[in-house]
Design a binder for these strands. Structure first.
Lengths: 125, 125
DNA sequence: CAGTATCCGATGAGATACTG
DNA sequence: CAGTATCTCATCGGATACTG
């Protein structure tokens, strides 16, 4: 029926590339990972993703919302309440992302060793 | 035995963060994905990862080599021959990355729909 | 072939101040 | 509370030219 076209992320103009950047980018990946724990409000996310600024968090969330990976639900009470959550597609991607992150953090001891060796071998003077 | 410390990527100063950026970054992720097909030379990689410049490919590969995820093997023949390959840890991460990318490209039809709806709803004027 | 060096414009990203 | 607006600086990233 469909899929007579394949999206190839290695292709220069493939529309999947910017989406991949939204998902795996510096703040997008951490926002996705945080939301995997369940729905969260803006400032909760901001506290969870340490070091992110208002501006970058808002920007990252908007990109993910546009891609249909994150839902944004506003409650026009006072004070304002906005809750972010993953869509079904977003959930799957977040799980795969957390799998990768988990393996990476588990490998940190050996990675730090590698970095030290490298820096030592490439030290100037 | 070990692991009385946990590396938390959500922590602002965690050393895992820059590594995650090397792996999931714009060109790093594509280089890792390409190398999952097997060892490759510099210019082969350059052709496979469409749109990457010499500068950025070299920079990304150096970061991944420093993290111990990519091996660089030089043959000092003439012309020079340099072969890049994944380390065992790099292989695992590349597989997880390709899993994510595969799901993402498979979801592209619905993602493109979402983007269109979003753009329409947020059109100015 | 596999890079490095340099220049330069575009984007990323933080700080601060303001608004519905 | 949940953002937007503006300013500013750093880094990203492409083009071009050069080297072992």
């Amino acid at each position: 029926m469909d899929s007579d076209v394949d999206y190839d992320v290695f292709g220069a103009a493939c529309p999947s590339r910017p989406v991949l950047e939204d998902v795996t980018g510096r703040w997008g990946s951490l926002a996705m990972g945080a939301l995997a724990d369940g729905p969260m409000r803006f400032n909760e996310l901001r506290r969870r993703v340490e070091g992110v600024s208002q501006k970058m968090l808002a920007q990252s969330l908007q990109a993910l919302e546009r891609d249909g990976l994150v839902n944004r639900q506003v409650q026009s009470t006072f004070p304002l309440k906005v809750e972010y959550s993953l869509t079904p597609t977003g959930e799957v991607l977040a799980a795969k992302l957390l799998d990768l992150i988990g393996y990476l953090t588990g490998s940190m001891p050996s990675i730090l060793d590698a970095q030290q060796s490298y820096d030592q071998a490439h030290a100037k003077t």
